[in-house]
Design a protein around this nucleic acid. Structure first.
Lengths: 146, 146
DNA sequence: TCCACTAGTGATAACGACTATCAATAAATA
DNA sequence: TATTTATTGATAGTCGTTATCACTAGTGGA
């Protein structure tokens, strides 16, 4: 016991969360982009526009935002994690453009199905990833005319 | 023109393929294991049982086997690739035990659905990953009784 | 308003998975 | 058996991501 009063963890698990310029810059950039971006790319973009945010901070904030459910994450085919600001809190999936990161939300008919399959095979604590990549209409037309 | 006769690429793209002890050892270990393993783990196991196979070789063979469709690959939630010998050549998915790597083949009702969704959103060249992880019956019971 | 406290930052080292390099080795073929 | 060259293995390098740690800057109280 330290004797400090403290905010007595308002939510389930207390998490101080202090608002900083970097955090705002990151979320801002993320929402103006719209599509999915890698942490590396985001870091590059942020520094290109002047702010001297470090890589570590980008990763930190991105992870935190993801934990808090404020952004969506996806793992690209080559193992890189991609992020995008998302407003739907509930579980959903995307079809993501390999080229520009544009994403459309989809709801594949697998959630219920998965439960059944898991149960009937004796599996518990089931988690799943369903990620779809493709080339969006814009990118495929611009590729043709080049 | 080198003048060599050569096998005139029997398949689509010619690929010499020479049979080596290492390759056999790797596929053997893979099929006795049964479940999914990471390249690193496989390398560890192989060296534990005497053979002095290098990491590079493990990765090379694993990649080659995967390319040839002789083994299945899956990407774990933390980005590591897992391999297992598989006999079904056609496209399918698995539900994999996070603990022991045991896998059951599943065929989620998404293949056709995906086509439709992709088309209706203007996406082409669609690829998808659908990976399910859980704890198998064996592992969950052994965890209880510990 | 000033201060103490500490979450958050940033530079960089470290880490882990994976790949490239390259001399040496060992299958296949003549 | 000799020749050719695919394959190997040790190792350095790449790349994404995280840990470390001294320092900076929100925040709440005096």
């Amino acid at each position: 016991m330290t004797g400090r009063t403290g905010p007595a963890d308002s939510e389930a698990t207390r998490k101080p969360r202090r608002s900083t310029q970097q955090k705002s810059a990151i979320s801002a950039e993320l929402s103006t982009l719209g599509g999915f971006v890698s942490a590396q790319e985001l870091h590059r973009l942020l520094n290109a526009s002047g702010s001297g945010i470090g890589v570590a901070t980008v990763y930190r904030q991105l992870n935190r935002l993801a934990d808090d459910g404020e952004i969506d994450t996806v793992t690209s085919p080559d193992g890189e994690r991609l992020f995008r600001s998302c407003h739907t809190a509930e579980h959903h999936h995307h079809i993501v453009c390999r080229q520009c990161g544009t994403a459309v939300e989809i709801s594949p008919p697998v959630e219920q199905w998965l439960d059944d399959v898991g149960r009937s095979n004796g599996f518990t604590a089931i988690s799943h990833t369903f990620e779809v990549f493709g080339i969006c209409a814009d990118c495929s037309t611009s590729a043709e005319t080049s």
